[in-house]
Amino acid sequence: MPSQPVRPPAAAGLLYPADPAALTMQIHGLLARAERQPGLPPPKAIIVPHAGYLYSGAVAASAYAMLESLRSTVRRVILIGPSHHHAFAGIAIPCCAAFETPLDRTELDSETIFSIANDTAVVFDDAAHAREHSLEVQLPFLQTTLDHFKLLPLAIGTVTPEAVAALLDKLWGGPETLIVISSDLSHHHDYPQACEKDSDTMDRLLGGTDEVLQDQACAATAINALQRVAQARGLMPRVLDLRNSGDTAGERNHVVGYAAICFTPALRYTH
């Protein structure tokens, strides 16, 4: 694949600070205030929200705080999120060499990209990534909590959970590979409706028998794919935080739901 330009940040100054010092301060503050989960094994995969840090940053931080023990272990991050601005079929990879944020530049995993380039579900589509915030807002957290890693950003278009699960299974790797699914939950319900809907979403995810519905999470396809592969590999989900914008920084007439979830081995969750 020929060398391509670096993908510049599109959401800096909108969803998170564009100033590196301010961004660093905000992320460290969110991580410092995050509630730790003593006794839990390090996660293989996490699900985190992707709104502005003011709204969902504290929820996301509860999952990113779990990466502290993986700082020097993780060398590859599979980052998956929905495409909000560009319609396409398949799973899109950008044709660039790196993603940049105000904090740093992270190199893409060209070796892995080459290995999946012929997968029938994979397409190369810069337009799917150019304005996509769901992946970008996770990168400053990853750049802060991990040392040196390469990135595989995957934007999800029209594709089946089975196709995403098959690709995830190929990419699963060992302790050096972390999987991050970027997803918000329900959108634009009033506060009581959102709480009820998001609670049902968690029941579906934790029960492991019912799929998350498309109107329950914007990355439902990726979440369902992860759940399939995780179950097959003996991993269990645990909800670390569940709130919405009405709990964090917004009004309660039209809220967006957020959850932080980790997948760890030998874990059983009771609720």
Rank of each mutant, 00 (worst) to 15 (best):
L154V: 03
T264G: 06
V137A: 05
A97R: 13
S110P: 06
A259S: 13
D241H: 13
D203L: 12
T264M: 06
L152K: 00
S69I: 07
P43L: 12
Y64C: 06
K197P: 07
P237N: 03
G246R: 04
Y191K: 11
Y64A: 05
T201L: 15
L240W: 06
A217T: 03
P161T: 07
D198H: 10
E211G: 12
A34P: 08
W172R: 05
R204G: 12
Q4C: 12
I181F: 05
G234W: 07
H28N: 10
V164F: 00
P237Y: 03
A259G: 04
Q37N: 12
V255D: 15
V48R: 08
S245F: 02
A98L: 00
E132N: 11
A163T: 14
L67R: 05
G173Y: 13
Y53Q: 09
L15T: 05
C262Y: 01
P43V: 04
D147L: 11
S56Y: 08
D200C: 13
Y269K: 06
G39K: 02
T144D: 10
F149N: 13
P265D: 14
G234R: 03
Q143C: 14
Y269L: 10
Y64L: 14
L206M: 12
S110Y: 04
P192N: 11
K150W: 01
P8I: 01
S182F: 07
A92F: 01
M66Q: 04
A92Y: 02
P192E: 00
Q4F: 15
M1D: 00
T248W: 05
I223G: 06
A259Y: 12
V212M: 03
V6H: 01
V137N: 11
L79E: 02
L30R: 04
Y55G: 02
Y269F: 14
Q214F: 15
D147P: 08
C218A: 09
T248A: 10
S245I: 11
T209N: 12
P161I: 11
A155W: 08
V123W: 04
A220D: 04
R204T: 15
